[in-house]
Structure formats: C-alpha cells, structure tokens
Design a protein around this nucleic acid. Sequence first.
DNA 1: CCGTATCCGTAACGATACTG
DNA 2: CAGTATCGTTACGGATACGG
Lengths: 123, 123
Amino acid sequence: MSTDTITVPVTVADHQNCPATSVLRRVGDKWSVVILSVLGHGAHGFNELDRSVEGLSRRMLTRTLRGLEEDGLISRTHHPSVPPRVDYALTDLGRSFLEPVRALGLWALAHRSDLEAAHTRNR
Amino acid sequence: MSTDTITVPVTVADHQNCPATSVLRRVGDKWSVVILSVLGHGAHGFNELDRSVEGLSRRMLTRTLRGLEEDGLISRTHHPSVPPRVDYALTDLGRSFLEPVRALGLWALAHRSDLEAAHTRNR
DNA sequence: CCGTATCCGTAACGATACTG
DNA sequence: CAGTATCGTTACGGATACGG
C-alpha cells in the first residue's frame, strides 16, 4: 500500500473484493440502518417491525431482513406456535456494527449546520 | 429520533429529513468513499483521479465530484492556465468525515472473517 | 401472523462520442 | 486537461395481490 503521492490505482477487483465495500453499501441502503436501530431496542416480530417503521413496505422489510441475516447482523428465530411467531434480534456482530454506524450518525448530527450551509451555498 | 423502547414509529418525513440519512446514502454510493480516500493523500486533478481509480468512468467521476462538492466535503479550484488545471481537495469537513468512515472500514476489516462465515453459512 | 410473487416506475451506473 | 451529451442496461424500491 502505497505510501506516496499519486497513482495508487484502485482496481475494480480490489473494490469489489474489499470487505468494506459491501458493508458501506449496506449502510447506504434505505432501510437497513433503521431496522438495525429498531432492533437495538430489543427483538421484534415481522409485523411489529412493519408497523414501527412508517413507509416501509412488507416487501422491502423481507428483503432487508434477509440481507441483514445473510450478513450475520441479525438472527431469525421461528416459534411454531399459534399464531406463528418469528423473532428478529441483533446478533453480537450486529450490535458491534451499530457502534461505527452510530459514530457516523453522530458526525452527521454534529456537522448538520455545515452540511446545510454547503448545500444552500451551492445553489 | 426518539428515545425509547418499542413502537417508535419512524415516519417517512423523519427518515428523509434526518441529516444522517443523506450522509449514509453518500457513504453507500459506489465511488464517493474511494474518491475521498484518494483525495486524503492530497489534491488531485480530474484526469489524475480518473486514472487513479480503475473502473471509474469520467461520467461517474464528474457526478460524484459534484455531489461531494455540494455536500462541502471537497473543494474545487480552477486555475485558468494552459493547459487548464483543476484541483480537487478535501475540505476540513471532508477530512473530519473520513474519520467515522474509516472507523466503519476498520470494523469491516476486523470482522471480515465473521462476515464471510455468515455469508457461507447462509448458502 | 408471516411472508411471497408480480408488475412497474425511477434512479444509478456504464459505454461511447463529442466539446471548450 | 477537464469536462458534457446521449443512450442503453441494470438495480432499487413501491403497490398490489395472493399463500402458509
């Protein structure tokens, strides 16, 4: 890794294989962080989550939950009762993930006025 | 951004007005973080950036630079010389932004094996 | 209660060609 | 050197309806 000045060619392969890239993309998608935050308060069922986040469709909830589960950030526990119950909860990995994500959120909050100023200046 | 236990209905308006949301989406887009990182090594010209990041088209470079500039994360300085020279550089805001972003990158690196394990397990 | 399947519109992204 | 214009493709997200 290079040290110096210019010409550090970042390859496409580097970019796609980089473990940070997929993480960054997950952070950028519309609902993942919201859902993780809600689950930070404790386990929830599917419809519970659906109702907790206004504007979130069941389709996107399903897809987001599957993605988070594939990344190992949340767990899915199916209780074959009547009525059926499924609990979604943060894993340890998910909890630790929320730390840097919160740091980013705090940064946004702390620099809110700077961001707004820049945005109005360039218009 | 409220506070407690369950049923904190997150409204669509909250989500879109939240200063963190736009920041998170910027982090999630394909090239912003890469460009910011390269600019972390020092100022660069347009074609210099284009060559530094393989796979990045001029079109996306332009658009990403404009976006970062609108957010006040980078500065654009035009020197009307011959040949023309334009310098892109991090602003103070941009430099401070890289800190939480790097924290996220370090998290990804530190938990790389966990992420891979989860991903293979669910397949 | 917990999802899936289908359709559709928009926005992101990439390739290519051209300009001051 | 530093871009813009145009076009085509793919990914993301929402609405609706149906199934276990």
